[in-house]
Design a protein around this nucleic acid. Structure first.
Lengths: 213, 213
DNA sequence: TGACGCAGACCGACCGGTCGGTATGCTGAC
DNA sequence: GTCAGCATACCGACCGGTCGGTCTGCGTCA
């Protein structure tokens, strides 16, 4: 989900270095399997520093979801697909951007929030809510464009939130299925899924235009 | 994924009791967060018994994926949707059955293989492969019906494996997004996603019939 | 200008407890 | 007798978290 942005600045503070290390480690091992000591080693920080910034490992998890949300949110907010004049093109542009980000092994493109959710949804309400905010925030950012596209296609706009959520469903599912593969084969498998997702939107909106004349 | 089958026999041997306990615990906590001691307690078995049947925790993970695969595979193989005369109805019947199984909290309907995959795909090749076999086995079971439906609709059959995988993608994604919610709201959110998946297949195959005359 | 006081950032040894895993012994069926 | 199927006691490593203390930078006031 976090792209290979060339100029993402090197994290300066210890807190940011910990969070950045957590992104990488949680993506490849999961939250539970990542120990605080491991996190400190990867961030080049002592255990004292860790617990100075985070009250507990769970608190780090909550902060990590927020950090992730803020980073990805900013990235997608600035992306050029917003400049398409037609709403449906903005929606398809989002899907295409997500496809373009699929490269390398799963830990390079998978979602931190989805990963944490999988193992923490029952054991930690705080982490679950933070991950919900991240995923549903991504969905919410698409709602306006989808609603406009539905209107322009003459379709019922009521389902815009559901369609936005379905995009996130397909993305999260693509990550999981990609993880069944060795590194090289993973990204294409995820891309295949997003191609079907794109086709769904094409069919849905062509259908609408046809019905509406 | 494992349904609430009324007459699933109570597991008799210690090995089966461990596997059955593992299904429940891994679903609600993940594989890494589930300890061997916890597993033994839940199964009413001692640690000696556990390591008598499984060489390591990782070996249990591999066996669990196989157990899961065999159970769910048998369930879907016997399901009545296979009796639909039209291939596309069998495909839609599968999706409807998956929707019907969505009830209760996420740990009651989510997928053991998908959950294990999320945290173990990098740390254990054996577990990854076992989970791949489970998920791709589910997909493979749909390929013939999808290929037949594509032929009957006059569409290119080349994409049948990809469509079968996409069904699994949507299901796995639905489980993750469902986990963002408190218990009661989880299942409807997953069902919403499968409704969109169904609509995709409807659109795809109506479109094909229209093009083919 | 400088020295004092303080606060936040950070250090790393250490704690109790839990982890996956092992060694060994018992028990009943064949 | 032997061997699968367990039980129990135990191991060392590692876990999340604590704690007393150090270092650095900054506002303040003489």
């Amino acid at each position: 989900m976090i792209p290979n942005v060339p100029f993402r600045p090197a994290p300066a503070t210890a807190r940011d270095r910990i969070l950045e290390a957590a992104v990488a480690l949680v993506r490849s091992q999961g939250f539970g399997a990542t120990s605080v000591d491991q996190l400190c080693r990867a961030a080049g920080v002592t255990k004292g520093a860790f617990f100075h910034h985070f009250a507990s490992k769970e608190a780090l998890g909550v902060a990590l979801a927020g950090y992730w949300s803020a980073n990805t949110g900013a990235f997608f907010a600035e992306a050029p697909y917003h400049h398409h004049p037609r709403a449906i093109d903005r929606v398809l542009g989002y899907i295409d951007l997500r496809s373009a980000l699929l490269a390398g092994p799963p830990e390079a493109f998978s979602c931190v929030a989805g990963t944490m959710l999988q193992e923490s949804f029952r054991s930690s309400a705080a982490i679950r809510q933070a991950c919900e905010a991240s995923i549903m925030g991504n969905a919410a950012a698409l709602e306006d464009d989808i609603a406009q596209a539905l209107t322009q296609a003459g379709l019922d706009t009521a389902d815009a939130p559901g369609l936005a959520r379905y995009i996130q469903v397909a993305i999260q599912g693509a990550f999981i299925v990609a993880k069944t593969q060795e590194s090289e084969a993973a990204a294409p498998l995820a891309a295949e899924a997003l191609a079907h997702l794109r086709r769904y939107f094409e069919l849905l909106f062509n259908e609408g235009e046809r019905d509406a004349g």
